[in-house]
Amino acid sequence: MSTVDVAVVEKPKAETSRAWTAGRVIGICVLALYVLIAYFLLRMIVVNYDPEFVGKYLPRMVGGLWITVQLCTTAIILGALIAFPMSLARTHHNPVIRGLSFGYVYFFRGTPLLAQAFLVYYGAGQFRPVLQDMGLWGFFRDAYNCALFTFTLNTAAYQAEILRGAISNVHKGQWEGAHALGLGKVVTYIKIILPQAFITALRPFGNEIIFLIKGSAVASIITVFDLMGETKLAYSRSYDFQVYLWAAIMYLAMVEALRRCWDKLEARLTRHLKRTED
């Protein structure tokens, strides 16, 4: 027994005298640089803390943050609703449906979100008489709706591609197995294929949401007072660079919250793949 104990105690000792390889030195230097940058940025916030300034602009920025959250959440959900049939259309046997869905995805993935937002916002303004006849002007008059519309179509295109890839990634044997068990196509799709596709799609889907959160800053350019809009307004009045730092921290917090949710979600979806502790 005692010999075993000694062996266990000695093991960590060997690890502490790890060699100072070039990679390790560089790694520590980079880490030190990050810590230094973080220190100075945080110091700037603390040193420049001005209750009047904070009281004036922080509530507005939090309001902007809320608009950003609303905008992104709604766009993601509506986008997912479009992405679902769109991913099916992408692999449809009818070439017209396939071609149309391909064109849609091709356009929205191939052009900048900024250009799309401008196109929708100012484009709708140009076509006002037509939109009025169709009763749609009430919707497109509002900048928030225009941003929501653009983001929804944009994210739907990306989500459709992610979903399509994930579905085609599920092994053919799963279809065959389900067929052999006498399951219908719809049931196979919902009960067998989709749950497995979701596992593959989860991470790229999370990335897409992160991209949308950051891309949503585009809304500020078409007059929506989202987080970026409020930040720019505060900066243009105060010329104080630190408002951008606050904005960066808020965006980071959103992404970090999402990342944590995604870890939880993945653990839940892949619980059947984990070996239980023995």
Partner: peptide, 11 residues
């Protein structure tokens, strides 16, 4: 320009 454009479109 953008402010003018939105006045012309009636926003």
């Amino acid at each position: 320009d953008e402010a003018n454009l939105d006045l012309a479109s009636g926003r």
